[in-house]
Amino acid sequence: MITTTYVPGNSFLHKTDPRIKTILLLTTVPLFFFPLSITAMIMILILLTGTAIYSLGFSRFLQPIKMILPILVFVTILTPPFIRGGDAILSIGETVILTTEGITQTLRLILRFSGITLSFYLFFATTSINYFILTLNWFKLPYRVALIVTIALRYIPYMITIYNNIKDAHKLRGNDYNKKKLKEKLNSIFPTLVSVLIHAIKLIPALSMALELKGIGLETKRSTYSVIVSSNLALQIITSGGIVLLTILIALFI
């Protein structure tokens, strides 16, 4: 098993067709790069926050916020002193520390980054990686690329196991991974990396032969992907259209 950001659930966002969610994502994220008013950005963020709490619960909603919190703190501390425009709010002697423009720009950066983070998180927390690939396939991602990514996803847990096994074997032979100096740490991990890579690369001819025998690589497709089936697709399209329209109206007129 590999950990993903997907959170199993039964919310309306989980049930929404991943193709529609992709279009919603592609509409929401670029909006944060337009010169919107602070009020409009706050309203869009409230909309996203409400959707996140309703679909995933409060503790799950906090997860991405906790991840970006250090960046938000640094933005709050570092950005205002570098923006000089607007009226001075705080100054020490003749040095201006804080201006109105500094606060506006900082707020804009915080809202933008939070909005983008939350939009992406909402998409991937309610869309499993299988559906994500099927969606990309529906949007005409080349067959071979989708095949490569699906095979890679299948091998990631296997590679993690191999890495851990080789690391354990090297530990038993006396390799110490807990050395203090960086150079010593790199020296101790180097033989493990060589072993992991050789093991991984030896898989290529075997996998290649298996694919070749199955006829993969020929011009005709040797396998097909599942078709995404959604109930109430028309209703979902109308609702999503309404959300997109509302978001654009907020962006334009507030």
Binding site: R144, I151, A200, L207, S208, E212
Partner: peptide, 29 residues
């Protein structure tokens, strides 16, 4: 003859993508 096979290209890319993900995501100092 090996590297020109589409199956070889698919296999090598898939394995290297998986190993790149593991090197980025799991192996850290």
């Amino acid at each position: 003859s090996i590297t020109n096979l589409p199956a070889f290209k698919i296999a090598s890319l898939a394995i290297l993508i998986a190993i790149t993900t593991v090197f980025t995501f799991i192996i850290r100092i």
